[in-house]
Design a binder for these strands. Sequence first.
RNA 1: GGAGGGAUGGCAGAGCGGACGAAUGCGCGGCUCUUGAAAAGCCGUGGGGCUCCGGUCCCCGUGGGUUCGAAUCCCACUCCCUCCGCCA
Length: 434
Amino acid sequence: MIDVRLIREDPERVKAALGRRGVPAEDVDAIVRLDVEHRAALARAEQLRARVKSLSRDVGEARRRGDVEGAAGLADESRRAGEEERDAATRTDRLAIELRARLLTTPNLPADDAPDGAGPDDNVVRRTWWPGHDDGAPEPVPAPHQRVPHWDTGTALGILDMAGGARLAGSMFPLYRGEGARLLRALTSLALASHADMYEEIRPPTLVSTETMTSTGHLPKFADEAYHVERDDLWAIPTAEVPLTSMRRGEILDEAELPIRLMAVTQCFRREAGAAGRDTRGLLRVHEFEKVELFAYATPAQAAAVHTDILARAEGLLHALELPYRVVDLCAGDLGASAARTLDLEVYAPGVDRWLEVSSVSWFGDYQARRANVRYRPEAGGPPVLVHTLNGSALAWSRIWAAIVEWGRQEDGSVRLPGVLAPWLGADPVIRPR
RNA sequence: GGAGGGAUGGCAGAGCGGACGAAUGCGCGGCUCUUGAAAAGCCGUGGGGCUCCGGUCCCCGUGGGUUCGAAUCCCACUCCCUCCGCCA
């Protein structure tokens, strides 16, 4: 949520900022009106409430004095005020609920340095990297034997069985086999090992409550995107960001413990309801995938450095895996609803000739922290302050798997895996036909 | 699934329906004493909304109810703990 006080005090600034992502100015005006009405109703309810309390005290006092009649009269008066108060409170509550509902579906303000633009076409490529880039190599040109889609190579080698996954759960649920499954496990091991210096490893639940899903902004607006277990009212997480953001929900942290850096490997579940038919082949877009997520709670002053760190770590893994990628700065119109700034990492996959998003490194400001009510006590004194939350994948394995298989494909159809995975795959990491 | 017990401030833990936002202890902060530290002593220490900045209201797991008045009584729900059953 954005701060209602900001909307109240500077609605024009909020309109301008939200306008950059396509939110109509009327939406902001509606919130301003509701806020005014709500505060008026609140003031009235509180006045009545104060009267009831004061009269009730007088009743007690009259009774102690032995003034039975006086007490009865005061009690009557208090009862009448109480009835009025109840009406006023009901009206106040209704307005508060309406106001909160609007705020919950209002997206975050884009950061000032997020590029202008309405959609994906306006995103800005900040830089591109590929192996050999440092010594001035020309752009990598894939060899013909690398121009084979991963689903063909995966099927031929018996390491990916999309039809098998479909038999179990439907299309877009991959099933990995043998060396293909082992590759996933190696990637997770590599990532967790390389972040363990700064990030605490967490293994959270992957089914979470409605409240947990609401804290990150995935509910109420994006319920269609998530799998829901109706009987127990639990949601399958679309990313580890969801449980990690709620890990310290409702707490007041000590400034000294910030930044708190966490990482988690989890399955991620996405219905992809809005993406029917797009990029659905192979591993381009799947309903379930595995991802290592980096996450941090930080003070506002620490946030920029933490954002840089997460991005650097995600890029570091791509360097280690020798995969060409580019850094894409999401424009205001393409930002996720909760994010203020997002840098995506996209890997180039030669077999499908596409750039695939494999990480999204985001800064949320206090938008999620306000929903989750996570604050810290400043060492300098003063009231608790909302933390900032940040996160980024490092990395999402399904598409990395696809890129590794496509880049690693050799002329004989075997796949050579990145040397950095040797500790988990053995000295000669080549997947050959069985 | 069954039977009990519980939920109060950073933590522990009191709290006859009437000035309780809440005793006490610990922790934390400041001060005194001390070369310094410790000990001791003194003082102070929850969060939030609205505000005409004078105040005022809300929060004792959550939501209802009773009452002139609820942390305190009643109901429902959630979560936690112990034991039993089942189980990877």
